[in-house]
Write a protein that binds this DNA or RNA. Structure first.
Length: 613
DNA sequence: CAGACGGCGCATCTCG
DNA sequence: CGAGATGCGCC
DNA sequence: GTCTG
């Protein structure tokens, strides 16, 4: 397919962002050219008949707004600030020669309809361009000037508007509404079904640790900060999904601090002065929140992220892939499969993430964890009764509901990990043959032997051929990831747990359901009686590292980060292998001694949700 | 005001 | 080919 | 995002 043959494209504001990058590749793969520098144009002289009509300018959708059904660049400075000198020159060129400008997601649409289709409504009009002159922008000084005018932050339009433009929420809303409509407009009505699909709304709290934090803190702190906590949580999630890890963390830490704060926050000033992790920016948001009861644009912003949230709830799909698919206006896993079968063929574990999407987003009651443990222990005894195992993770932290089951295996006075791995692999294979283990998420030679069939069946079910080489690790790993399911039905006394604590139900799109394991099982009225498939992780540790390992695998993740930060501040390093100073091992065997060396009191696992120093 | 923000395992991609 | 970067995973 | 040296 070379629908872009003979065409050249200029991407604005830059080519560096990953979501833009994917368009760049799409264009190249379909015969189009990318213009990056001015000389790319001057070298190729304009067509005698059509001038520069073979050149199309593409603008990233996030910089656009709708006005009377027409695209406009909603804040020129924002766009210009993201361009380097070359791009600014090309921008001048585009303006001077009236090069057609359209929103970049049109590319995705063109590929769908297999031709380039531009109508008047798609064309972006440049209004009130401040008309930066080349002489001006070529000095670095004035670049700085234009940035200081309104500190901008790539892609974070919402926050910027709140900050720079807090007076007018009108502007903000029109932009966001438009962004919400981008899919519809660029498809000019022809792809109407696309937008109508209902993206499932699920509970905000998918993550087990988050869930327990906010649940417990809400219980002990019903003092009126709930709205703020919820807002901070949303902001954190939005930035996680956008892949901005550190900004997301900023909000998350603020959220945790507010949860712990024992009073109702009465003013932004109070919050900023008394609560850690609240700085100028969040204080400003608090002010708006206290005054108006909401943060303009937040709802719409999180709606914009919902497609990405859907994708990244699937095992094997992270923020980058979700962002890529989202920017191509892919709405379902099935659509992604049709477009990029190779990804699924190669990253076959995503197919199992899909198959068990709903199951793996459910919580596990403690009582069920114990049952899994019994099965595994029993089988292990038969293989090697000198190997011991314990559940770590949220189970050891005494959570009523766990996200998955983490089992740590070790053997007294044994530091040979690959020795242990061999036994564990046998254990897993036996359990697979007994149909307790349903799937593996990575392969070794032996596992592939028993599991290959299942992979192939699953690939077929997805409608992709299986001629791809699958990489098989030869080394003995310290871990084994798998999915397993209790074959019995849920006993009477247990069902209350499943109904009183309804597991958070993350639902697949209807067109994605066909891959789901629960489709067959739940079609009968048995739904409640059968156990879901669970994520189970086997971890192996050296006997000499058992303290550090338990500390690591008990978590929580948040707790680990805090403790490790303390280690750093004392010039040490803490990992699952031990506590180090200048690469010299200080302690790895005794969990308590690690706390001692870090000069913090021993914290019981149930209190390791978050740090309380 | 620049730089850090946890640390590691595994698979894959990219580039010299 | 190997070193480093990237993406996703684990707590 | 905030915090630190």
């Amino acid at each position: 397919m070379a629908i872009f043959k003979g065409r050249s494209f200029i991407l604005f504001p830059n080519n560096e962002v990953s979501s833009i990058n994917i368009f760049e590749n799409l264009i190249k793969n379909n015969g189009g050219k990318i213009i990056e520098y001015e000389h790319d144009i001057t070298n190729a002289s304009p067509d005698i008949n059509y001038g520069y009509s073979h050149i199309i300018g593409l603008v990233n959708d996030s910089y656009l707004t709708l006005n009377n059904n027409k695209y406009e660049i909603y804040e020129n400075n924002l766009l210009l600030n993201e361009m380097d000198l070359n791009k600014r020159k090309l921008w001048e060129f585009v303006k001077k020669n009236n090069i057609t400008l359209v929103n970049i997601s049109s590319v995705s649409f063109w590929l769908k309809v297999k031709k380039i289709l531009i109508n008047q409504d798609n064309i972006i009009t440049i209004t009130k361009d401040p008309g930066l002159h080349l002489e001006e922008i070529s000095t670095s000084d004035s670049c700085n000037q234009s940035t200081s005018e309104c500190e901008t932050d790539i892609g974070d339009i919402i926050n910027e508007l709140v900050k720079c433009n807090s007076g007018s929420s009108k502007n903000l809303n029109s932009n966001l509404n438009n962004a919400d409509n981008v899919g519809e407009v660029s498809s000019s009505g022809t792809l109407h079904g696309l937008k109508n699909e209902v993206i499932p709304q699920y509970n905000n709290e998918i993550e087990e640790d988050n869930k327990s934090i906010s649940a417990s803190s809400l219980a002990r702190n019903t003092n009126g900060n709930e709205l703020l906590i919820k807002t901070l949580d949303k902001l954190s999630k939005i930035h996680t999904i956008r892949g901005d890890e550190f900004r997301s963390r900023g909000y998350k830490l603020a959220k945790i601090s507010v949860s712990k704060y024992p009073h109702k926050i009465k003013s932004a000033k109070e919050a900023q002065e008394k609560i850690p992790h609240i700085g100028a920016s969040i204080a400003k948001k608090i002010e708006t929140l206290l005054k108006t009861g909401k943060l303009p644009g937040l709802e719409i912003a999180s709606k914009l992220e919902s497609r990405k949230e859907y994708f990244s709830s699937c095992y094997g799909i992270g923020p980058v892939t979700a962002e890529n698919w989202d920017s191509l206006q892919i709405n379902s896993l099935n659509e992604a499969l049709k477009r990029f079968p190779k990804i699924f063929q190669h990253d076959w574990s995503i197919l199992f993430g899909w198959k068990y999407y709903e199951d793996w987003n459910k919580k596990i009651p403690r009582s069920e964890c114990v049952k899994h443990m019994q099965i595994i222990k029993e089988e292990l005894k038969l293989l090697d009764d000198s190997i011991e195992c314990e559940i770590q993770g949220s189970f050891r932290r005494n959570r009523a509901l766990c996200g998955d089951i983490d089992i740590l295996f070790y053997k007294k006075e044994c530091d040979d990990i690959s020795d242990l791995y061999v036994v564990l692999e046998m254990l897993a294979i036996k359990l697979y043959k007994k149909k307790y283990i349903k799937c593996f998420l990575q392969l070794s030679k032996n596992i592939n032997l028993v599991f290959d069939n299942e992979i192939q069946t699953t690939l077929q079910k997805a409608g992709i051929s299986n001629n791809e080489f699958r990489s098989i690790s030869l080394t003995n790993r310290p871990k084994l990831f798998l999915g397993a399911k209790l074959s019995t039905t849920i006993p009477e006394f247990d069902t209350s747990l499943y109904t009183i604590n309804p597991e958070i139900d993350v639902k697949l799109h209807s067109e994605d359901k066909y891959m789901s394991s629960s489709v067959q099982a739940n079609s009968v009225s048995h739904a409640l009686e059968e156990y879901p498939c669970r994520r189970i992780d086997f971890f192996i540790c050296k006997w000499s590292e058992i303290g550090a390992s338990k500390l690591h695998y008990t978590g929580s993740g948040e707790f680990n980060r805090e403790v490790r930060k303390i280690a750093i501040s004392k010039g040490m390093k803490l990992t699952q292998h031990g506590l180090y100073q200048n690469d010299i091992l200080l302690e790895s065997f005794n969990e308590k001694r690690i706390f001692d060396l870090l000069d913090i009191p021993f914290i019981e696992p149930p209190d390791r949700q978050e740090l309380k120093f």
